[in-house]
């Protein structure tokens, strides 16, 4: 497998260093750019799989760079990084063409998990179930019409939240999804609840799945959760 190549566009040297260091530790190849112009030039020299783009750069705003990159033939997936964290700022970033938006301060595990998710989205190598169809991972099947999960002959009915949660995990099988990604994509929440909503709902889901005789969801401490396809046999 060829390592994913990521361009980190960030003018703060310490933060850029941390991101590159973190990504390399996770097996990515990284390049750095400290300004929008440098980033634009780098994109012409090298094909990147993804860009981590700071919203506020010394020369041009990150959003303007997005506009220029969009005009190019090959456009890498873009994860926008910003200290501006209001709902409106987020909407602005996504509307400008970013594939995801992460607010500073952030966690390396979070950044890495989101990068994987948007690169997959860009590659479109997995279209099944993206918009509500039936999903299958191994023998584990999820029926969109009846909200039923089944493993072989056994089937259980899930409530709407458990269904969406399992669907998201199955679509991202074998990849780490973080608590924040689940809150955003399964619940659509733009705030951080004081209680651990994700943990409680996941533990319900696991109890339900235990009824099928499988326990494919793994908690990765300090990182997130993974649905393991090898546990769905």
């Amino acid at each position: 497998m060829v390592a994913m190549r990521v361009l980190v566009v960030e003018d703060d040297l310490a933060i850029a260093g941390q991101i590159c260091h973190g990504l390399m530790a996770r097996g990515y190849a990284t390049d750095r750019a400290h300004s929008a112009q440098a980033a634009f030039d780098a994109c012409h020299r090298t094909q990147f799989d993804a860009i981590v783009l700071d919203r506020m750069l010394p020369d041009t705003p990150g959003i303007a760079l997005l506009g220029r990159l969009r005009a190019e033939s090959h456009r890498p997936a873009v994860l926008m990084l910003s200290a501006l964290g209001s709902v409106q700022d987020r909407i602005d970033g996504l509307e400008a063409g970013a594939d995801d938006y992460l607010t500073k301060p952030f966690d390396m595990a979070e950044l890495s998990a989101r990068l994987v998710a948007i690169c997959r989205r860009g590659g479109r190598n997995e279209s099944a179930g993206e918009d509500g169809g039936d999903i299958a991972v191994g023998r584990l099947r999820l029926d969109a019409a009846s909200h039923c999960a089944s493993l072989g002959e056994e089937a259980i009915e899930l409530n709407r939240k458990q269904f969406s949660l399992l669907a998201y995990l199955m679509r991202n099988a074998d990849r780490v999804v973080t608590r924040a990604m689940l809150l955003e994509n399964v619940w659509g929440y733009s705030f951080d609840p004081a209680t651990n909503i994700v943990e409680s709902n996941l533990s319900r889901l696991r109890t339900r799945l235990a009824g099928l005789g499988c326990d494919p969801i793994e908690t990765k401490r300090g990182e997130g959760y993974t649905l393991r396809s090898d546990q769905c046999r």
């Binding site: 409530n159 709407r160 939240k161 619940w187 209680t195 651990n196 909503i197 943990e199 409680s200 709902n201 533990s203 319900r204």
Partner: peptide, 14 residues
Amino acid sequence: TDVAETMEPVIADA
């Protein structure tokens, strides 16, 4: 109804 479905496990865990 939607929020109750989400929060029921949280309150049950408490």
